[in-house]
């Protein structure tokens, strides 16, 4: 059984139609994904509230399976904080997603607002996942800095360093108690390193399902299965670490 911590469920992206909701759910069934954390894509470019409402609507139809993460535009200052408060007041939302590359802002350029947003997430006890691994707005170091700014917030590197920042991701997640790794991107030979360096308890599974071709899901599953980790570690990555991060024992879906 799997909890997929990194997916996108949206209508379209830059003019291209994305995977329909039913196809998304069928794929979850086929690959034994019990729960998917769903993010926007189009909402990274604007009109966050509408996209947050769309995510909530999808979750309302499948509350046991789809867990929406809210996205806000940190360039809007307190307006963004208010929008995040609005979303997190809705018990369907269980996390926050930023993509500072696509949202076109380095966290340090809006530091005051970012700190308010992370404190808001911490107050609601929900994790905050970021795209990482891409300069100049979303390097793994830039995202890890956020974990230092607000130690009470749970920050997740959405791609665990993606490709060139893998070593840094392992080191930083090992060093910072509130920094976690989502395995969307690292290959089999890197996952063992991340576990050895950051600790397997810091790792959750993610596939980017819905963003592109459906085969990303089974390929990401295979990266973990072929990593050489102990089956018990693999089941933590696929499931129980995500249960803890989402606090599902205290707040079941």
């Amino acid at each position: 059984m799997i909890i997929d911590f990194h997916t996108h469920l949206d209508e379209s992206w830059i003019g291209n139609k994305l995977m329909p909701e039913q196809t998304f759910l069928d794929l979850m069934n086929r690959y034994e994904v019990e729960v998917a954390c769903i993010f926007t894509l189009e909402g990274f470019y604007g009109n966050c509230s509408m996209h947050n409402d769309n995510l909530a609507e999808r979750a309302r139809r499948n509350p046991q399976r789809l867990v929406p993460f809210a996205t806000v535009n940190p360039k809007l200052g307190d307006q963004a904080v208010n929008e995040l408060e609005r979303c997190l007041a809705n018990p369907l939302f269980r996390g926050v997603k930023f993509h500072t590359w696509l949202q076109a802002i380095a966290p340090s350029m809006v530091k005051e607002t970012m700190i308010k947003l992370l404190k808001c997430a911490a107050k609601h006890n929900v994790p905050v996942i970021f795209h990482d691994g891409t300069p100049p707005y979303a390097t793994t170091f830039q995202i890890a800095a956020l974990a230092r700014w607000v130690p009470a917030a749970k920050i997740i590197l959405g791609h665990s360093g993606l490709s060139d920042y893998i070593v840094a991701a392992g080191q930083l997640a090992g060093e910072l108690d509130n920094l976690y790794l989502c395995l969307t991107g690292p290959k089999s030979g890197e996952i063992k390193f991340l576990a050895d360096t950051a600790g397997v308890d810091k790792m959750v599974f993610g596939s980017d399902l819905g963003f592109s071709d459906w085969r990303m899901l089974p390929e990401c599953i295979d990266y973990v299965l072929q990593s050489g980790l102990h089956p018990q570690s693999i089941s933590k990555i696929f499931y129980s670490n995500a249960v803890d991060l989402l606090d599902l024992k205290r707040r079941p879906l």
Partner: peptide, 10 residues
């Protein structure tokens, strides 16, 4: 870094 099994399954 990557792995034969993953490629052949894909």
């Amino acid at each position: 870094r990557n792995n034969y099994a993953v490629h052949f399954e894909a």
